[in-house]
Design a protein around this nucleic acid. Sequence first.
DNA 1: CACAACATTGTAACTATATTACATTTTGGA
DNA 2: TCCAAAATGTAATATAGTTACAATGTTGTG
Lengths: 142, 142
Amino acid sequence: MTRETHSHDHGRAPAGLTKNQSLVFGALSRAEGPLSAYTILDQLRDDGFRAPLQVYRALDKLVETGMVHRLESLNAFVACSHPGCDSHETIAFAICETCGKVAEISDEPLEERIRELAGKDGFSVKRAVVELRGLCAACSQA
Amino acid sequence: MTRETHSHDHGRAPAGLTKNQSLVFGALSRAEGPLSAYTILDQLRDDGFRAPLQVYRALDKLVETGMVHRLESLNAFVACSHPGCDSHETIAFAICETCGKVAEISDEPLEERIRELAGKDGFSVKRAVVELRGLCAACSQA
DNA sequence: CACAACATTGTAACTATATTACATTTTGGA
DNA sequence: TCCAAAATGTAATATAGTTACAATGTTGTG
């Protein structure tokens, strides 16, 4: 079976994740690109998932801890691509509209410029959504 | 009646807009902040709107011409705030999570930095989604 | 005018995305 | 053990967007 955890372990693979969180994170990690909540649901039917809420609850937690990012312009989710998932400093995403792959971008000057712009208007930024839609290097030369 | 156009004019108020486009643009212009497609639909029931598609079709065109912007992180739409709607150079939106108002931001250095970042990866940007979520000046001092 | 070509509109059904409400089970500590 | 909190299960519903097809209106041309 494909089940990732079982027996007395009662399902919590990586760092303090519950069973459902592990399953959802696993699905996103196996994927090449972003997945919608409902695609994840379909992939986890065999693991006992039946309802959207099971996915959304796990996603909420994973997004909260930074292990997963939500792509607003796609209504989809990706596993954070930072190896140990320790520094989730991502500020932007480059989303290829041909192959679907997503690159994470961290850039201090960009953050700085955003803070500056906001500050000028007295706007206090809680979260910045920066998503670049276009073609990745591989796809644009094809 | 509130109808904006009638008689032999056959409905095309501002610049080459069709009747439905005018109605949708009117609804967005009257609003203080962004509206969802379904909210627009509800507001236009009295003008004969019955189905979502009537709204989405008009929105498609309005967004295409830049008179209306789509806010990806909100699944909603706003009328462009540039007076004559001639230069739609907006690159970013500042969305207040308290009062719901949206400010448009144009900033050449920001655009430049984004182009630079993308170029470094060989990524070719077709569209940049930049939405700042937070508190506007008025709401943050309250 | 007549007619063809095209754009716009109307309507229904459907797919996709996300949340609310409530019941049950699991887990960890006093 | 027993309780409280966290996690899970399930159903129903709300919200967002699309597909398919029919009808109507508009415009240019012979």
